[in-house]
Amino acid sequence: MTTTRFFVYGSLSEGMVHFSKIQNFIVSSTPSQIRATAYRLKVGFPVLVNSGADLVSGQLVELKTSDLLIGLLDEFFGYNPQDPAKSLYHRQESLVSVIGGGLEKAWVYFLNPLKLPLNAMLIHGGDWIRSMEEQPALTAKLSDKQKCYISKLGSSSGRDIVPIDLQLYRELMNLELIVDKGRRLALSKLGHEVYRHLA
Rank of each mutant, 00 (worst) to 15 (best):
S143N: 11
S11P: 07
E75Y: 01
S87Q: 00
V47E: 02
K181E: 15
I34E: 02
G52I: 05
L88E: 10
F77Y: 03
L95D: 09
S51K: 03
S94T: 06
R130E: 15
Q167R: 08
H197P: 04
L114M: 12
R35A: 09
V61S: 01
G58C: 12
V108D: 06
L138I: 11
N80S: 10
S157V: 00
D74L: 12
P136E: 04
P113D: 03
L172V: 11
K115V: 11
D67H: 01
A120K: 01
L88Q: 00
A53T: 11
N112Q: 13
S57Y: 11
Y195E: 08
L166A: 12
E193N: 07
Y149Q: 10
Q59L: 15
N50C: 14
D74M: 05
L69T: 04
F77M: 05
P113V: 06
G71Q: 00
R159P: 01
R130W: 14
F7M: 09
T2E: 14
N119A: 14
S66I: 08
T65Q: 00
D144T: 08
M132W: 06
I178H: 07
D54L: 07
K42E: 07
S13T: 14
L116S: 01
D180Q: 07
A106W: 11
G78N: 02
P81S: 02
V43T: 07
R35I: 06
M121P: 00
S57G: 13
K145F: 01
G154V: 02
L41M: 09
L116P: 00
G126T: 11
S97M: 14
S11L: 05
N50Q: 14
S28T: 04
G126N: 02
F110K: 01
M132C: 08
L166K: 08
V96N: 12
Q59H: 15
Y195A: 08
S29Q: 14
K147F: 03
K115M: 15
S157W: 07
G78D: 13
G101K: 07
L175I: 10
K141C: 10
K105S: 15
L175P: 08
I34S: 01
G100C: 07
I26N: 02
H197L: 15
S13V: 06
A106E: 13
D160E: 15
V194F: 04
L95K: 13
V179A: 10
V17R: 08
E104I: 10
L63T: 03
V61H: 00
S13D: 05
L103W: 07
V43W: 01
I34A: 09
L63G: 10
K145Y: 02
